[in-house]
């Protein structure tokens, strides 16, 4: 008796309606099916559909660690992106491309709380050298995001099958071979360690950039320490983890 009641209560009437799918045998039949079940339905629901999609026009977002600003000018007449980088010469390069850019520390962003529709941080979080700083960097982006706002964050992966590289440790120094012709006069600052290298007749200065390479599940682990978010996806592609999250309403 009680079982029956439970079954009745849990059954959802909308699930009871099963529209049979008969695979079309001719192209004309297929045309008829698409007309009835695709085209004509969208004719009716298009305006409702539009209302349920994410509104891009007038979206305001941030790019944390914008580098040379390559993501800042996308659809810039309809969306407003502000880039920041701790490196002032990157901020200048972005600004010269006409982007909104400022110099700021990712751990203390110069924005109001609950302000942005979206945020991206592409290949930045792996430059923070402790777990605490990586978690705090994620928290800081989430702070400035609006409830319901989305955040895409990527980091280099420990597995580098695509590039065919192997690293022994998750915390590594990755060399950058600097060519003198790009000098802006700052490379000889005494605090920066570098070694001169000659390769195929060209002189380079070898710099060592710090990276923390991400393991499988590492974004999940970091975000478990950030409140008020849900992870929408985390995928490995071309040696990078791409983690997409949403700030809860």
């Amino acid at each position: 008796m009680s079982n029956n009641n439970n079954n009745n209560n849990s059954s959802n009437p909308s699930e009871d309606i099963k529209v049979p799918f008969n695979e079309p045998t001719t192209d004309k039949e297929a045309y008829g099916l698409e007309l009835k079940h695709v085209h004509q339905i969208y004719d009716v629901i298009s305006s409702h559909f539009d209302n349920t999609r994410y509104k891009m026009v007038g979206a305001i977002g941030v790019d944390v660690g914008c580098g040379n600003g390559k993501y800042l000018n996308i659809n810039s007449s309809n969306i407003f992106s502000i880039g920041s980088d701790i490196c002032s010469s990157f901020a200048s390069i972005s600004a010269q491309k006409g982007s909104e850019s400022l110099v700021a520390d990712g751990l203390i962003l110069p924005y109001k709380t609950n302000s942005f529709d979206y945020a991206i941080s592409i290949a930045v979080i792996h430059h923070f050298s402790t777990v605490e700083r990586r978690v705090n960097a994620l928290r800081e982006v989430v702070r400035v995001l609006k409830p319901g706002g989305v955040f895409l964050v990527t980091a280099w992966a420990m597995t580098q099958k695509w590039k065919g590289k192997n690293y022994d440790s998750q915390d590594v120094m990755v060399p950058w071979m600097f060519q003198q012709k790009f000098s802006n006069g700052t490379e000889n600052t005494t605090e920066i360690e570098s070694t001169p290298v000659q390769k195929s007749g060209t002189n380079y200065q070898k710099f060592h950039r710090y990276y923390h390479l991400f393991d499988e599940g590492e974004f999940e682990h970091l975000f478990s320490q950030v409140s008020n978010i849900e992870i929408l996806s985390n995928n490995l592609d071309h040696d990078n983890y791409y983690c997409f999250i949403r700030k809860l309403e």
């Binding site: 400022l102 520390d105 203390i108």
Partner: peptide
Amino acid sequence: QGIPNMLLKEDEIYQDI
């Protein structure tokens, strides 16, 4: 040059945070 510099100095970061 159109760029606000919002960086705190080292002593300000550690004094405040």
